[in-house]
Nucleic acid binder design. Structure first.
Lengths: 330, 330
DNA sequence: GTGAAAGCGCTAACAC
DNA sequence: GTGTTAGCGCTTTCAC
């Protein structure tokens, strides 16, 4: 693999000169430009960006800690983040921890040792880890941005889950639902991320009604687990007429289950999901859901991270609005 | 950010010794081990893996060139590839080109300049680029593996699309379909990847029937485009009773469209998709489809790539079987 | 068992 | 304009 020295030798100049034409920094004579360009071409030279960032001590790559690639929410987010970063001349280093807590630390370490400029964590940093991580972070002087809700003061870019819960509650109530069931995320583990649940319940109770809550881990992608929860709900709550799921996958499963049982949607049962994942509008019937503003979330996250890398002061929390999309399941 | 020198100074030893305990290579005295470990802890030291791989001249990361993260097929593949790589002690550097040809070259360049050990290309390398890329690759001495069908001799790990087309054709025929429509990928651009189409058509003609083909770019994720194709088909082919789509997204769209029009599935129209994407079993009705063996595909790709990096000779083509999953749309 | 020194591929002063 | 030199953070001989 050709190095800068090979190019220099081939072109009959010094490595510094090669570096100059490569980075278009200083002015070079037309002739050397020619020679170097030719040498680069001839030798198929590709500069070693690892070496470059080593000497420059800076980094145009941002680490992204993802629960998984195959979850449609995170898949879409990864895509948007990547595009937003590229648009601003940054690159992303993705790593996923398969939704497993024990893998998370390793994934985090991975990003740190690759010396990324900062880390966007698409996962709740649970209390214990949070403190340890933050201690570490401060020492390694690496900006950390949470891409999901965390309770205490910490830089974060998050969807307005409170609003999401509120919208869902009002919508179901307005449609006349009175026996409402809600499937939340893991309430024990990720207290912080369940603002949508609290807002939902609060609103329903404020209107003098009640609802029943089931828990289902949000970040898991095990079909069986999800199917089980859905089965259980339909078995235990035959009288329910409104169902609010914490994500569209669960919602899709529920719609499918209801239809298979001959329960009419939305006449007998109204179902509302969360996220407005790519597939949701393709389903039959198209899913009513709370839409995430993927574009804005990722743009904001990248922008904020770049500002953090630049050492600028930033406001702790950026909340991005969600939106109710009424389709055919309510 | 602490460096190895800081650790050495803090522990009162040389950098070589620190390196030794970090890499557990040579034997170190119990005492130094203690001191160094403490220093590492104290200073929150994280070795700079970029520097390490620079001096070692080797690399435990494999580049993956992806069309996009948000396409469910590639999302699932990314996940499996990542897990397979980690299991074998390798890391993946992902980049996506948003399905745009002009971005592909940049994405490729990105991986080359990061000096990955090899590249898994999840995209057809069209003729022209293929030759250029291969020329380059040979010079940069970087193994390249195609993860989709390419015509000529070239290391590749691919699904048995021929078999997939065959299975789909036989299934539809066996169910009594006689007015069959098929939506293929982009036939002009990616000739090589359309074995499924050719096998499908061939089988149907062999049985003395015919089918009508529509084209739709496989790697695009623009809803409108896809919706348009589906609309067009249903408008132009009111008599069709069998529909084979090149991917599950198009299939989901078609099912949804049919149901919305009051066309009964599968009684009046049988629909079969391709890939068995995560959502497909969640749909209503659950989708009949050709299942990809995601696990085997990615395991094989990683294994083959590692062998290539190690300089081992490899067989050109690894074909992974597909499977017909009959659910409720046929 | 441990340290000194060279060098991976590159850039950034500093000379000329 | 261009070359020389030092050094980014690390590993790896080669001495001792």
């Amino acid at each position: 693999m050709a190095t800068i020295r090979d190019v220099a030798k081939y072109a009959g100049v010094s490595t510094a000169t090669v570096s100059r034409v490569l980075n278009k920094k200083d002015v070079v004579s037309e002739e050397t430009l020619q020679k170097v360009t030719e040498a680069v071409e001839k030798l198929s030279y590709h500069p070693n960006l690892l070496a470059r960032s080593l000497v420059q001590g800076k980094n145009d790559t941002i680490g992204v800690l993802l629960p998984s690639f195959d979850h449609p929410y995170w898949g879409e987010m990864a895509q948007r983040l990547d595009q937003a970063a590229k648009k601003r001349g940054y690159y992303l280093l993705f790593t996923e921890y398969s939704g497993k807590e024990e893998e998370k630390r390793k994934a985090f370490e991975y990003l740190v040792t690759r010396k990324v400029g900062g880390i966007i964590a698409c996962c709740p940093l649970e209390k214990e880890a949070q403190e340890r991580l933050r201690g570490e972070i401060r020492k390694v002087e690496m900006p950390l941005l949470s891409f999901v809700w965390v309770t205490d003061s910490f830089p974060q870019v998050i969807p307005d889950d409170r609003q999401g819960g509120l919208l869902a509650a009002r919508h179901l109530l307005a449609k006349g639902c009175r026996n409402i069931v809600h499937v939340s995320g893991d309430l024990k583990m990720y207290k912080e991320t369940n603002e949508r649940t609290y807002a939902f319940v609060r609103e329903i109770e404020k209107r003098g009604h009640t609802c029943i809550i089931y828990e289902c881990p949000l970040y898991g992608t095990e079909k069986e687990e999800m199917q089980e929860v859905v089965n259980k709900i339909f078995y235990e709550q035959p009288q329910m007429d409104g169902l609010f799921l914490s994500n569209d996958i669960l919602a899709a499963l529920s719609v499918s289950y209801a239809l298979a049982q001959g329960i009419r949607v939305p006449e007998e049962l109204r179902i509302i999901g969360y996220d407005d994942v790519w597939m949701s509008s393709f389903l039959y019937p198209p899913l009513t859901t709370i839409r995430q503003n993927y574009e804005k979330l990722s743009e904001q996250a990248i922008e904020k991270m770049i500002r953090m890398i630049g050492g600028e002061p930033i406001e702790e929390k950026t909340v991005v609005p969600v939106e109710l999309i009424e389709r055919k399941t309510t």
